[in-house]
Design a protein around this nucleic acid. Structure first.
Lengths: 233, 233
DNA sequence: ACTTAGATTTCGCCG
DNA sequence: CGGCGAAGTCTAAGT
């Protein structure tokens, strides 16, 4: 990984055009050709400009001094070309570090995990629910959980970490499809289960007859008791 | 901005838990407390771990050698705390650069710009269209443009850079809502305007009676004449 | 190769 | 401050 700190101005042309006036910035250049440009202010996570690999990086140096003068990062984007033009006025620092082999990030607690926990404890989706199958296939995609309720009726459960209107649309499509595909599922119900359900999503879901369930990861893991105050209102 | 290259292992706990095994990585620490952790492989744009400001950064040094041993980044996240634990085995490099004041990115060509241009020239959405309001509020979100057509009928316009099936669904929801909310809008029509309309989106839109309009940013800006060949077919 | 859905999405606007 | 929609979203998985 090469790290260049330099006073530079940057122009990007591609899906849109952007311009960065002259200032001191960090240029991070990865071995795979990925380039990102950083300033001390602004986002901790998002670079001011970037180019994802595969790219072609061209460096142009001053003939007399050998100093880095210009850097162009190019990338094929369909018929056209994405281009990052970096005009360098002064190089403050320029170092390269070998970081060895990749070390992957291990995650725990994402939507997939939530699905596992709810599959093991489907009663959190609704009283008396039993799991029939995870990832129940339809021809427009898999339903997260397919359950039977206490009255033995079919229930499709859509699981999200944060449920927005999009989640409601997705569940709507599944219900439509299931009801059309299989006469036994003509009455299939829908449940939206999420750690957080946005108000508009709740309104739309309930207007379409879906039940909304907010679940707590800690409770699902048995690390915490359910909030009993809910039942004392 | 402080740049530390170090052999380290990282644990994050917060919205989820993650672990990074010992490896050489770059730690980018901004003056505002933003921290991001990078490896040479993987994404050019997304760090392996990060914490957005405001944060509290604690550094722990070896008593004998003064070498950096441990770094903890903490952040309030509602009731709980997000935490980034960085165990440092070896510091390869540790430099700080003053990057001066912020230098903002100037953008051109995004959806907001497209919406401005179409608001000024609604006739590109349809012959004889007049703008009534931008960002017309409904209780499931704002309609990009609300217009009247040549026959004085209401038209809701949804604007996208690239229109997918999602855009059609969004417009469908708005039309549904408008027709239900207001008797005067019982007949409101829909127009999907985008720089690019995906074939599947076009099929779905037209099957639902929406009109599709592909617009050219350069034409909207008056930089280029409309493609007359369209009228010669 | 292309499409779809998730993301510690992040970011910006508007209430 | 929270909610919602866009993003040069990016990325990984499935078809």
């Amino acid at each position: 990984m090469r790290l260049i700190v330099a006073r530079c101005a940057v122009d990007y042309t591609g899906r849109l055009t952007t311009h960065l006036p002259m200032a001191v910035r960090l240029l991070m250049i990865k071995n795979d050709g990925g380039v990102s440009i950083w300033h001390d202010g602004g986002s901790a996570v998002k670079p001011q400009n970037w180019m994802t690999p595969p790219t072609v990086v061209e460096l142009q140096e001053d003939e007399a001094t050998g100093a880095l003068k210009h850097m162009v990062v190019r990338k094929r984007a369909g018929a056209t070309e994405d281009r990052l033009d970096i005009a360098i006025a002064e190089v403050v620092s320029d170092v390269t570090h070998d970081m060895g082999e990749a070390a992957a990030l291990e995650k725990d607690g994402v939507e997939a995990h939530l699905q596992e926990l709810l599959a093991e404890q489907p009663h959190w989706c609704g009283e008396g629910f039993r799991l029939v199958r995870r990832e129940w296939a339809t021809d427009i995609g898999p339903v997260d959980l397919m359950c039977r309720d206490a009255e033995d009726g079919w229930v499709a459960v859509e699981i999200k970490r944060v449920a927005t209107i999009e989640a409601v649309e997705q569940l709507t499509r599944y219900l439509e499809r299931l009801r059309a595909e299989d006469p036994a599922m003509a009455e299939v119900k829908g449940v939206l289960a999420a750690q957080q359900i946005k108000p508009q999503a709740r309104v739309l879901a309930e207007s379409r007859g879906m039940r909304c369930v907010e679940v707590d990861l800690a409770v699902l893991r048995g690390e915490r008791e359910p909030d009993l105050t809910l039942f004392m209102v």
